[in-house]
Design a protein around this nucleic acid. Structure first.
Lengths: 156, 156
DNA sequence: GGACAGGGTCCTAAAAAGCAACCAACGGAT
DNA sequence: ATCCGTTGGTTGCTTTTTAGGACCCTGTCC
């Protein structure tokens, strides 16, 4: 996402985008979360060039989002499976999905729905305040640099 | 993100990434959410080329994430402010931030914290099931194509 | 031995990003 | 009236990334 390093951007958003912000990367993670594990599996689902896929998978493995595990011996074949770290990107995917459903819908309803495996109910991603325990609307979010008291900025 | 159109990807994640998935875009939205409104303001915070910034701002305005409003007359000057639609990307930003804090931290704690404007408490982004009302862990999320009953896929 | 599957690499071309210079509309100082 | 600074860009060129496709290797199946 950024040139190479964070260029002085001490920001977890920028850091995360360094890992998953390249073209195709989040769609690869999405498909991995949906159960795709093999090179050809990703290739079949995404109109991505093989070399780019190869590069993205290597990057994700390097960052511990995917794990490359051998699943047969002769010939040696590997598959890519989401790690726990990778699975924790699910909220990112669901919040992107929710935004798309809400703002880019084709008035035929969402193409894909996320459900709770245990009970089949629909899943919401939302923000809550740990202190007052209420739901938090986007406009009520403020950010502050940590370790430096004061210096409050409105919104994220 | 994708080549041009969705190439048959009827997926809200892909659609959303078409809008905000280009290099720099989410960092621009992040800064807009933090109150930056002017061309030079973004330029001062991001190591981005002017022509690229120009292009990204135009794209975001075109998609209704930012609004370009004139704030003075002579000479005519505009500023970019987040629309409600744009502010709804806050959960995306916070979930990216949470992941970065958790997995890419520099063991000095998170550089920036998100707080509830009304009470100052820390904000969490989480997934809940609308049916059983419980918290949902990443591994408990399943996706299903809408309008086609059956065909359940594990995970997002 | 030939075809096929899976998982790549390599090379070239096209698109996107980076960089620096320049433009334009003003306000203000000299 | 001239020059300087500010804001918000555009233009043109260079460097990186992506895309697209050909090709390769290992091994199985027929």
């Amino acid at each position: 996402m950024l040139r190479r390093t964070y260029d002085g951007q001490t920001c977890s958003i920028a850091r995360t985008l360094e890992v998953v912000g390249e073209r195709w990367t989040l769609l690869i993670v999405r498909d991995a979360a949906r159960g795709v594990t093999r090179f050809d599996g990703f290739l079949a689902r995404l109109p991505i060039a093989r070399n780019v896929l190869s590069d993205r998978l290597a990057t994700l493995v390097r960052h511990g989002v995917l794990d490359r595990v051998q699943y047969q011996d002769r010939p040696p074949r590997h598959e890519y499976r989401l790690t726990a770290k990778g699975r924790e990107l699910v909220p990112v995917l669901l919040s992107l999905m929710a935004w798309g459903d809400r703002h880019l819908g084709d008035d035929a309803g969402p193409p894909v729905v996320a459900e709770h495996a245990e009970c089949g109910g629909p899943i919401d991603v939302h923000m809550t305040c740990r202190q007052c325990e209420g739901a938090v609307a986007p406009a009520e979010v403020v950010t502050r640099e940590a370790r430096r008291v004061g210096h409050v900025t409105r919104d994220v």
